[in-house]
Nucleic acid binder design. Structure first.
Length: 931
DNA sequence: CCGAATGAAAC
DNA sequence: GTTTCATTCGG
């Protein structure tokens, strides 16, 4: 699952996001450094290639916690049970944390000597990571430092609740990290150090560079593909950095795996080579690990090192599923978990290739001896042997990418074939193979390929080593045959569904299918492959799959009632489907209407229509349903959706993002809702649990990342938090002019609160004109009143927290530097809360002045509205903003009344700079009064 | 490599 | 209380 999930994830992100993202990193989270570190990194070196890389510190690498993490994950899965509540899950420590960790730690710690684990990011850093790109968009000129300042401002203004989200997330990471690295010291003792970086060095960037590069590259290639119809190169290998939680998991798994299986693992030894290898194999390893760990019940399964991890994993899962589910009711494999496992298998094939496992299969000698290119071919050829049909085709491949893809496919095929042989040597083999090859896998393969592209060289070398190992280990490909069948069918069905979903049109394909099936063995794949048009491939795969899969799917459908509920979330499924589609199908990038859920819906409907029209509706639907279900259950949808959203945002920005693209709060909310739904659905059976656990972990990580809200600059600028950024979603594009916010913001507000809007306008005007001389004083008291009222009215507990929020250490620092603290406190002092929230920093930036002013206002408003909003968000009823608005309005009215009084008294505003632009309040009053 | 920010941990 | 270091990436 993980693998597949990752792949999907990756692909999605690539599709949409990356292209645009080029300049600035996408919003998406990258792996936590620590994760990344695993690979070993000396980041300094390479940063050049990667955009992101943190160029800075060369510090040591760290390996530590990953393995642990993996174990934990496993444990977690086993332990699990906590899933029940959505929220709980979130909070649940990612890792199980038990003894296992320690063991791993030790070993790793030793290793760590080389590298030191990187600290987990704190809340602010997470926030920065997530929002920096936005800031940069708004202020292209700003350098990072400037952006950081702005981010700091935002952070200061950020609604406590929102802030808490980040804080919690950071805490989770930290906890996980600490579990992984029990003895981790934030500040390494002077001793460690130094390790010659030179030795190990693979700079983290390098490691990531590969993926990241792929990411960057991908876009262009992708476009090419679109034009050319390249296979969906979009998918690059999953970039761990972007993978976020998942990547972490993978890495962890990888790491652990390497440690376990590959004692000799070169990862560490060879900086570059090893690292790459590790990455490639990471998924595999992860799978293995998971499988081994997970399978308590299955003794034999544990060591399947020989077989591809994915395969094993799948098997295991299947086993578990069977065992667990006494009922044969559907196919054993039918369980969502099982399907996922299968999917994983499928994906595995791809991965395998990448990692060089393919090579493994092939004779090691060959690979080593032969130059890289040749090696690949050899591999292909070898594979061919396994899968003669495809092999031939693959050979023909001319395009490099294509070749790779094919290779991947072939690899898969080989694996599957072997499996099939074991279990069933029939026709299916062909089909299955094709199926495997063709379907989503292609995309996966492509992804991998893409990712591999750059690093290939290194990989190759590394591969050799690994291959050696693998070969030794791997010799045993076969495992349980029985399961396979079911699994195969399931897989096929899943794949099929996926593809179908992606394409959206089944009917046509199906019709073709039958004929193709026949042909497919030889010609289809290869010929099309050669052409390497993604569409063709897809079609083929679909065709192949369709026949068999249909029944499977139907069965699946029956299963999940949950599915329905899931489907209820129109958006989620739709998007998922869309996303899928988009990648493969539309290279053109139309990209689904990003932000708009509506569009998505429409698409869905369209899809449905197509399906219906096409023909076997049921099957199609069932497929979709199954797919959705599976995805949902796995939480993949959520992640996908989130990713897609992200991609859209990023792409949107760059591309023609829809107005709103970036800021749909909806998306955010959506994702959450989706996640929650997923969780609910999940309720795994014990057996499945382990799988689940993994899924959960992933999901959680991802969810967390995704869930971290991204706020539109406007919000901050305006600071009218009152206007709920989230809900509003006003389509105002993210890109908008920071300062010009007014317009956008106002518009938004108007929608919700016309009156308020007017108020704001006034405010701005005021700000613009007088700027400073504004009545800060009034504001403070007023604010307080507001807040209080709001709080009361709103019910928001958080507010008080806000109010209280004492300056934190860092803040203190700031205050000291600026010396403002005193002012703030004293001045605001009376209004403790206001002061705290406002936290006026003395910013020199012209912008800042405006922002501050606005921000100050927003503070007040924000709190009020913010709470309401937040609540609403939780409820997920984005539609209901009215309520929040309502509260805020009421509060405003009251406040206004108070304010008026104050004003009268004070008449002259004190000249307090920035803060007080509260002038706006006056207008507010008016508006409120009107209401 | 610095830096600008915040925060957590260590000293 | 002060240092260290986590992320980012232009300078």
């Amino acid at each position: 699952m993980v693998c597949l999930y990752l792949i999907l994830y990756r692909s999605l992100s690539h599709d949409k996001g990356f292209e645009t993202a080029s300049s600035s990193s996408v919003c998406s989270f990258h792996l936590p450094s620590w994760v990344t570190v695993m690979k070993g990194s000396s980041r300094n070196k390479d940063h050049s290639t990667e955009g992101e890389g943190t160029g800075k510190r060369p510090k040591r690498k760290c390996l530590q916690w990953h393995p642990l993490l993996a174990k934990k994950l496993l444990d977690f899965s086993e332990e699990e049970e906590e899933e029940e509540e959505e929220e709980d899950i979130d909070k649940v420590p990612l890792l199980g944390a038990d003894g296992l960790e320690q063991d791993a730690d030790e070993t790793e710690d030793d290793e760590s000597s080389e590298q030191r684990a990187r600290r987990p990011m704190n809340a602010f850093l997470l926030f920065c990571k997530r929002h920096r790109s936005l800031v940069r968009k708004e202020h292209p000129r700003l350098d990072n430092r400037g952006a950081t300042k702005i981010l700091a401002d935002w952070w200061a203004v950020l609604d406590p609740k929102e802030k808490q989200k980040y804080t919690d997330m950071a805490k989770e990471y930290k906890d996980a990290f600490m579990k992984a690295n029990p003895g981790y010291k934030w500040c390494p003792t002077t001793n460690k150090p130094v390790k010659t970086q030179t030795s190990t060095v693979t700079s983290r960037k390098k490691l990531w560079a590969f993926p990241s590069d792929s990411a960057k590259d991908i876009p262009s290639p992708r476009k090419v593909t679109k034009s050319e119809e390249m296979p969906q190169l979009n998918f690059g290998m999953a970039d761990p950095t972007q993978m976020g939680g998942l990547s972490m998991l993978l890495l962890a798994g990888e790491h652990a795996l390497t440690a376990q299986e590959v004692s000799s693992n070169t990862c560490q030894s060879d900086a570059t080579d090893s690292t790459e290898v590790c990455q490639k194999s990471s998924l595999f390893q992860f799978a293995e690990i998971s499988s081994s760990t997970s399978q308590p019940g299955v003794p034999g399964a544990v060591k399947q090192t020989e077989e591809s991890a994915l395969f094993q994993f799948a098997e295991i899962s299947s086993n578990t599923s069977q065992l667990s589910s006494p009922e044969p009711v559907k196919h054993c494999g039918k369980s969502a978990l099982f399907q996922l496992a299968e999917m994983c298998l499928a994906s595995e094939g791809v991965k395998v290739k990448e990692p060089g496992k393919i090579k493994v299969e092939v004779s090691e000698d060959v690979t080593r001896e032969v130059p890289e290119m040749e090696v690949e071919e050899l591999e292909k050829t070898t594979i061919k042997d396994s899968c003669t049909r495809k092999m031939e085709q693959s050979e023909t491949l001319q395009n490099w990418d294509e070749t790779k893809a094919e290779e991947l496919e072939t690899v898969k095929c080989s694996d599957f074939t072997s499996l099939l042989k074991d279990s069933n040597p029939f026709e299916r083999n062909d089909n299955t193979k094709d199926y495997m090859c063709r379907s989503p896998e292609l995309s996966l393969a492509e992804m991998s390929i893409l990712g591999l592209g750059k690093p290939e060289k290194l990989k190759k070398k590394k591969k050799k080593n690994k291959l050696d190992r693998h070969t030794n280990e791997k010799s045993t490909p076969k495992k349980p045959c029985k399961k396979r069948q079911s699994s195969e069918s399931d897989i096929e069905s899943v794949m099929y569904t996926i593809e179908a979903v992606a394409k959206g049109d089944w009917g046509a394909e199906r019709l073709e299918e039958t004929p193709r099936k026949k042909a497919r063995p030889s010609s289809n794949v290869k010929g099309s492959m050669l052409d390497t048009k993604s569409p063709k491939k897809k079609v083929k795969s679909k065709e192949k799959k369709t026949s068999k899969e249909k029944p499977m799917e139907t069965t699946k459908e029956s299963k999940p009632p949950d599915f329905l509920s899931i489907t209820a979330n129109k958006e989620v499924p739709c998007e998922a489907s869309d996303s899928i589609k988009v990648e493969p199908l539309t290279p053109t990038e139309e990209v689904v209407p990003q932000s708009l859920p509506e569009q998505v819906k429409t698409e869905d409907s369209d899809c449905v229509k197509k399906i219906e029209t096409c023909g076997s509706r049921k099957s199609e639907r069932s497929c979709k349903g199954a797919l959705y279900k599976t995805l949902v259950s796995e939480g993949m949808l959520t992640s996908l959706r989130a990713n897609v959203d992200r991609g859209k945002r990023s792409s949107g920005k760059g591309n023609s993002s829809d107005h709103e693209g970036c800021w749909n709060e909806e998306n955010w909310a959506f994702s959450q809702s989706g996640t929650s739904g997923n969780k609910k659905l999940k309720r795994p059976k014990p057996k499945e649990e382990f799988v689940f656990g993994l899924a959960k972990l992933e999901e959680e990580f991802e969810k967390k990342f995704n869930s971290l809200p991204q706020y539109s600059p406007i919000t901050f600028d305006r600071k009218n938090s009152s206007v709920p950024r989230k809900k509003r979603k006003v389509g105002s594009s993210s890109s908008e002019q920071p300062k010009s916010n007014k317009g956008s913001v106002q518009s938004k507000r108007k929608n919700f609160f016309p009156k308020i809007v007017s108020k704001y306008k006034h405010k701005k005007k005021k700000l613009n004109v007088p700027d400073k001389a504004i009545l800060s004083e009034d504001r403070n008291p007023i604010e307080l009143a507001w807040r209080n009222k709001i709080c009361i009215s709103a019910l928001n507990t958080p507010e008080p927290a806000m109010m209280h929020e004492p300056l934190v250490g860092s803040q203190k620092r700031k205050a000291r530097k600026t010396k403002i603290t005193h002012l703030v406190r004293t001045a605001d002092g009376r209004v403790s809360p206001a002061g705290g929230t406002l936290e006026e920093k003395p910013k020199d930036l012209p912008q800042s002045s405006l922002q501050k002013a606005s921000s100050a206002e927003t503070d007040c408003n924000s709190e009020c509205s913010g709470n309401a909003e937040t609540q609403e968000n939780h409820s997920i009823t984005s539609d209901m903003p009215a309520v929040s608005a309502f509260f805020s309005l009421a509060a405003l009215a009251e406040v206004a009344a108070m304010e008026n009084v104050h004003r009268n008294q004070r008449a002259t505003p004190l000249p307090h700079d920035g803060q007080p632009n509260e002038m706006s309040q006056a207008p507010v009053l008016i508006s409120c009064a009107d209401q």
